[in-house]
């Protein structure tokens, strides 16, 4: 009986929490519609602080940040939303718009990068799992249907190709963990030739520019790549974006 009561109470609590989240989200929408962008930012951020991690939330927060003239944060949240929904046209358009507004140069992905970024990391994993299960089923069928083995082997090329493609796709996203993306959060950020204070200035980065990490230094320096150039920045000039 006690157990049943606990389940009921747990379900009610979940419903109440979901309703509270809906209410906060709606309040933030209203604040945004009424031009109270700073308030909308706070409301969206409070949801993120509660552990909510929907791409829609990051996208709306990014919109509010953009309207509140906080370009680095807007770019950062658009990019975070894009990690989950890489094909979403709204996210892509707004990220492009924000980067243009910042005067930042967008990196142009190669054909393969474009292909592998067409699905999110979760979607590539689902593709891999489907390929894997299909391949396993085909192997099981092969054990029972000896005469159809050749045909089944040929059919097996499809899930094997899926698995391989998903592997490459997953690896593409993995590169973002190895070489994470950062957003420039300080004006007049200048990348230097070396990871030392007073080193020669190499190139300047606009506020809100997205850069990719190449390597790090133990003294708080990050080697970043931007517009095909590589230079060193202090970590207080940039904020991490990649998950």
């Amino acid at each position: 009986m006690n157990k049943f009561l606990r389940i009921i109470i747990g379900l009610l609590l979940c419903l109440a929490t979901a309703q509270a989240q809906d209410e906060s989200f709606q309040k933030a929408q209203t604040a945004y519609d009424e031009g109270r962008y700073a308030e909308a930012v706070l409301l969206y951020e409070s949801l993120i602080e509660r552990g909510i991690d929907n791409p829609e939330l990051h996208y709306n927060l990014a919109n509010a940040c953009f309207k509140d003239s906080d370009l680095p944060k807007a770019v950062s949240h658009y990019r975070t939303a894009w990690y989950d929904l890489p094909r979403d046209p709204d996210i892509k358009a707004n990220l492009h718009f924000a980067l243009n507004a910042a005067g930042a140069i967008e990196s142009t992905p190669s054909f393969l990068e474009h292909l592998f970024y067409s699905l999110s990391r979760s979607e590539w994993i689902i593709v891999a799992v489907i390929g894997y299960i299909l391949l396993t089923l085909l192997f099981i069928l092969m054990l029972f249907m000896k005469r159809a083995r050749r045909t089944l082997l040929r059919i097996g090329l499809i899930p094997a190709a899926l698995l391989l493609l998903a592997g490459f796709g997953w690896n593409q996203w993995r590169q973002l963990s190895i070489h994470p993306e950062w957003v420039v959060v300080k004006t007049e950020a200048t990348a230097l030739f070396g990871p030392v204070e007073g080193s020669t200035a190499h190139f300047k980065l606009p506020l809100g520019a997205l850069v990719q990490q190449r390597s790090t230094d133990s003294k708080g320096w990050v080697e970043v790549e931007y517009d095909g150039k590589q230079g060193w920045l202090k970590t207080d000039h940039i904020s991490p974006v990649s998950p």
Partner: peptide, 28 residues
């Protein structure tokens, strides 16, 4: 990219999602 004519403003907000996800849900 250089010649693409951008809209005058960003695309509007997205509606509330059907299910609220946590970071753990995303990395199932």
């Amino acid at each position: 990219q250089e010649t693409k004519i951008l809209g005058r403003d960003i695309v509007y907000l997205k509606p509330a999602p059907e299910h609220w996800k946590t970071a753990a849900d995303r990395t199932w």
